[in-house]
């Protein structure tokens, strides 16, 4: 439970993103406008992460547990060392699902 007043972190980021889109993007050009667009994309990404992050974290924990791995680093090491070779199709399925979760936050259009 967090003690903060409204607006939420997500709403605050949204407010800054809207300002960038409404005022900054429209009154800049060239490199500055490009960098403003990058900033808009970054803030939109943070908004998505704030929305779905907690659910994704729980799902990710379950996937790691299913493979008997403590964390992402442990999973990477065990793939590298061949310790999961007897269940590679399952490993690939779960890792790809995680990649899709990352894309859902980073760039959902990429999944189309």
């Amino acid at each position: 439970m967090n003690p903060h007043d409204m607006p939420s972190a997500e709403q605050l980021v949204e407010a800054v993103r809207e300002w960038l889109e409404r005022d900054v993007m429209t009154s800049t050009s060239g490199r500055l406008q490009f960098h403003a667009r990058v900033a808009v994309n970054v803030l939109a990404m943070v908004e998505r992460e704030l929305q779905v992050g907690p659910t994704q974290a729980a799902v990710h924990r379950d996937r790691l547990e299913q493979l008997g791995c403590a964390d992402e680093r442990d999973l990477a090491r065990r793939i590298r060392d061949g310790e999961l070779d007897d269940r590679l199709p399952e490993v690939r399925e779960l890792v790809w699902a995680t990649v899709k979760d990352k894309l859902t936050v980073a760039n959902p259009k990429y999944l189309d």
């Binding site: 990404m45 790809w96 990649v99 980073a106 990429y110």
Partner: peptide, 19 residues
């Protein structure tokens, strides 16, 4: 640079392409 920072979150695009 926020532009360079954002590129870190493009790594999953490559991961998806690999799959």
């Amino acid at each position: 640079s926020h532009e360079l920072a954002a590129i870190g979150r493009r790594v999953c695009e490559n991961e998806h392409d690999l799959f």
